[in-house]
Nucleic acid binder design. Structure first.
Length: 231
DNA sequence: CGAATTTGACCAGCGC
DNA sequence: GCGCTGGTCAAATTCG
């Protein structure tokens, strides 16, 4: 059960811009990220990481989410920070690029209410809801933010651009990329932050079932343990 | 000439 | 039902 104090804590964290982070969800720097930092000579101090890895929401409970610690309190933060060579961890903000993340968190939070309400719905409505839910199943996604001149950071994988779209309320287009590896359905979106065009928002969707095509082995070797664990 | 990118069209989901 | 928006497709174009 949840007490009032926990709700207040969540509310405060949310107002401060921290993501209420479920303990049973993984938080990880994106694959090949520090390779990118090195490759583009981006000083770690200039890099804000707002990383979010949300699996399918179905196995998350109301309690899990609300009892979670926020991003700053996670035990593995030190580990992650050191992997980034001291890159500063930032909170996810409610920017356009992160709406999906907030959406999923909110979705989780309302799951319990929905279950109760569903008892009052007709069979047809229930079927429709199930169909929609099935269609709505999404690959795990996470996004991160880097201050960079270039839009596409080198993450070790080969990507093919398949679309570009001007998104509402932004002057910069969003680009859509797919992993070029056969049978790999991983996608990524790249866009610039409306509020600060120096920041690039990269959103990954899906999991690679293969290793990076790049043969920059020294970095990937150092990462492999982390990557294998999360990815 | 094949691969990669560009870009307009199309489609699905969502809110009104 | 309609319009808006984001995501994807695929033909055309460009690049190496």
């Amino acid at each position: 059960m949840l007490n009032q104090g926990m709700f207040e804590e969540q509310e405060m964290a949310s107002q401060m811009g921290f993501v209420p982070f479920p303990q049973n969800l993984s938080f990880l720097p994106p694959l090949g990220c520090h390779q990118s930092l090195k490759a583009f000579n981006i000083p770690p101090s200039l890099v804000g990481v707002a990383d979010h890895h949300l699996p399918s929401t179905t196995n998350l409970t109301h309690e899990t989410l609300l009892s979670s610690a926020n991003l700053k309190q996670r035990d593995d933060q030190d580990h992650i920070a050191s992997d980034f060579g001291g890159a500063q961890l930032l909170s996810l903000q409610r920017s356009n690029a992160n709406l999906w993340a907030w959406g999923e968190v909110n979705e989780c939070l309302s799951n319990n209410k929905r279950i109760v309400n569903d008892h009052h719905l007709g069979v047809a409505t229930m079927k429709m809801k199930k169909m929609k839910a099935r269609r709505k199943v999404r690959e795990p996604r996470f996004c991160f933010k880097t201050m960079s001149e270039v839009d596409v950071l080198d993450d070790g994988y080969k990507w093919r651009k398949y679309g570009q779209k001007v998104v509402k309320n932004t002057q910069h287009p969003r680009s859509y990329y797919r992993c070029t590896q056969d049978n790999c359905r991983v996608k990524k979106r790249v866009e610039r932050l409306a509020e600060d065009p120096r920041m690039v928002i990269t959103t990954y969707e899906g999991r690679h079932g293969h290793s990076p095509s790049q043969d920059d082995q020294e970095d990937s070797q150092a990462q492999s343990q982390l990557n294998n664990f999360f990815w």
